[in-house]
Design a protein around this nucleic acid. Structure first.
Lengths: 68, 68
DNA sequence: ATGTGACTCATAGTCCGTG
DNA sequence: TCACGGACTATGAGTCACA
């Protein structure tokens, strides 16, 4: 599977496990709401600094977001 | 440690383990040679598609390149 | 609460070189 | 063989209005 798709699925799942809306999640992470929406649809090709931000907030390693 | 630093170290180590020059490695992966040089010095902020390319060629998961 | 198109500005990524 | 620079084009970062 495409790496963007994997990120999309992993991100959405992990956000939902925190019971956060995209809006609340985006606010907490410090990324714009629509950007999160794009990521969860695999519509963006983010840099690793974005991955790092997400992983840190979620308390996981970057690999957890990108690996299957 | 910074995620770019981690990538830099992991990448250099894994390339050297294959006994490839930056130039040969870059050619095989399909990325420009100067870009590999930049990555190994932590001077760049690559997108996840670049990470994917590197990981596939090296036969590892993206996490192996980004996690410590 | 979320998806989407459009937009500006910064930077990812390429290609030419040099010591 | 590699670090590093300059110049360039393509695309990501970040935001908004609207459905």
């Amino acid at each position: 599977m495409d790496i963007r798709e994997r990120l999309a699925r992993n991100l959405r799942k992990m956000r939902q496990q925190k019971n956060l809306s995209q809006e609340a999640f985006a606010h907490d992470v410090g990324i714009h709401r629509t950007y999160i929406s794009d990521l969860e649809r695999g519509a963006r090709n983010p840099t690793i600094t974005i991955i790092d931000k997400l992983a840190r907030f979620l308390g996981v390693t970057p690999g957890t977001l990108l690996d299957e």
